[in-house]
Design a protein around this nucleic acid. Structure first.
Lengths: 343, 343
DNA sequence: TTGAAAGCGCTAACAG
DNA sequence: CTGTTAGCGCTTTCAA
């Protein structure tokens, strides 16, 4: 207990007494509801201010089954891809007077389950799950127990959850198109986690785009790995050992690409002259890599913003079946083309 | 409302009926409390499993005045310095069965106030505030209303909040010592936000270390600015315009240093040959800057871990007056010394 | 326009 | 060992 604890909470009853009215009247004033005379209302407001009354959201939630809280699940805020999603979601939530319950699930399916259950126990009003790894069945079962849900970067049954996602297949095709255009033919792919939905879509994009160009990516040149800098470093070594003739490295995300760049520098392999490198996500530091990284950009802030907006619509019973798909945008930098002379 | 809503929540009473006992007995079983026969206990457990009962933490909180929730305030998760703090704090919280209420306050004092009040309304069990900007009086008043509190990167009255912080003055002296040792004499300082406590401590470190070496940093060479890459870019230009003879740029943090490096590269100024650059924090990407950045490292994960551990102690009434100070560690990289030949 | 009563789901305190 | 009673702070329902 805090030594300076001034926690003697003032309740509706205290205010009611002070104002000489019933708790119900105070409740009406607090919630800006009609049915209170102007004089009484003023008197109650005065009492509220005097006593420093603040409504107990826990008590309100018990009765009203609403907590003004949203559960947000992200794989890992430590991955620069996610913080902006959190910010986008939070800004919308705060504008509605809601607060965020955040959980990092560290690419771990069981932590996803635990988080969803913890949210349920706390009676959150809605849930947003980013890049969930759970199987569709388990996820639907868990989300179905919530009042409203939105999934980011994956589809879902519209009745269970809305979805906001990036068109990863399109994005990857853009990237491959660019690489093919600059003459790359021998691809190495660092594919990211096997259970990642986004990873599968991106692989699909690679396959389709190369196939259309009559080019084949050998299965041995596609390697799964953790979506981290370290993962990128080790996978790059493996890939290069297997096939030294690779002329383009397609990385699951910018972190992996960062690892690839570090390793290539260590090996003395020139980027982009000998090997072109592309990432995905355009994290804030991608432009500062050496060389700056060609990648796909999408506003993750908007992703979070849209997800939360959609969640509020679903919480109000509107907007069912909505599925927002954002198109990422190709950002060409020096990792796939020789540096232009400075302006 | 979710179309697949299976939200008919099962309550203690449902379980009690199913098991043919009173709610109190079920409550005892749920909370692993003594005073229930083994046979009954088993029967109740069975009923719980059958019905899929999960305790309503909101209801429990109303009675028990505990929500198993911790409020965490960070300036901005989008700043790579903070996510690891969140993770460190979260890992400890989850191990105790607690969940995190997270709020980004975006370097905005009024959002700090709003967050602290929102936490109070939700009856969180404790609060951790990272790098708060509020004045000591307002902060103490707000924190005093919470059961327990810990401040990160700033001191507080021990009765009001515990504190976990880095020794910024020491850290900055280390950095300055290093710069002086390699021969830098003409310093430019990008000092960070004026209301930041950490910023003031670091300035103190600069002053003391340079003074001991009989060197003076002109007041005009110390410029406040936002703790961002963009802030670093613009402030670097201003500083260089004022004093082109600067031979070392001391940056508030690594983001600012990143901006400085970008600007220096654009201006064609060689780092470290003409100007040495140092950052602060050792964010994960600091080693990947061009050139890699000399900076002070501290495990922000540990900062978060310690803060949450201390908070739990304070919640239990122990550990009052504790003030943990972590020493950062100098990491010398190429931004202050010519690159060594590759191993 | 106002208020009294009941109860959300749980637990503390006290019976039996 | 088990159950009953009361009430946390609020809102819904119904009555005045």
């Amino acid at each position: 207990m805090n030594a300076f604890d001034t926690t003697e909470k003032v309740t509706l009853a205290d205010v009611a007494e002070q104002a000489g009215v019933s708790v119900m009247t105070v409740s009406r004033v607090v919630n800006d509801r009609p049915g209170v005379g102007e004089r009484t209302r003023t008197r109650v407001r005065h009492a509220i201010a005097t006593l420093g009354y603040r409504p107990n959201i826990v008590a309100r939630g018990l009765k009203a089954h609403r907590s003004r809280t949203i559960g947000l699940i992200v794989p890992d805020v430590t991955n620069p891809y996610f913080p902006a999603i959190v910010r986008g979601a939070e800004d919308v939530a705060i504008a509605h007077g809601f607060t965020l319950l955040l959980t990092n699930v560290i690419e771990d399916v069981e932590r996803e389950v635990a988080a969803l259950e913890a949210f349920e126990d706390r009676r959150v009003d809605g849930v947003i799950a980013c890049s969930p790894r759970l199987s569709a069945e388990r996820l639907d079962a868990l989300l179905g127990r919530h009042h409203a849900a939105v999934i980011v970067n994956r589809r879902s049954k519209p009745g269970v959850a809305g979805s906001v996602r990036l068109d990863h297949e399109y994005g990857m095709r853009q990237l491959m198109h660019h690489l093919l255009a600059i003459g790359c033919r021998r691809f190495g792919v660092i594919a990211g986690p096997v259970d990642s939905h986004a990873a599968r879509e991106r692989i699909l994009g690679i396959d389709r785009e190369t196939r259309e160009h009559g080019i084949d990516v050998p299965a041995a040149n596609v390697l799964a790995g953790p979506p981290t800098v370290e993962g990128g470093e080790s996978t790059t070594r493996t890939l290069l050992a297997r096939d030294p003739s690779i002329d383009a490295l397609v990385c699951f995300n910018d972190l992996v690409a960062a690892g690839a760049l570090v390793t290539l520098a260590e090996l003395g392999i020139a980027v982009p002259e000998r090997i072109a490198v592309v990432g995905y996500d355009d994290i804030p530091f991608a432009r500062m890599f050496t060389p700056p990284l060609t990648t796909m950009r999408a506003s993750t802030y908007d992703l979070g913003r849209h997800a939360m907006t959609m969640l509020f619509e679903r919480m109000e019973g509107r907007g069912h079946g909505v599925d927002i798909v954002l198109q990422p945008e190709l950002v060409v930098r020096a990792s796939t083309r020789a540096a232009a002379p400075p302006a």
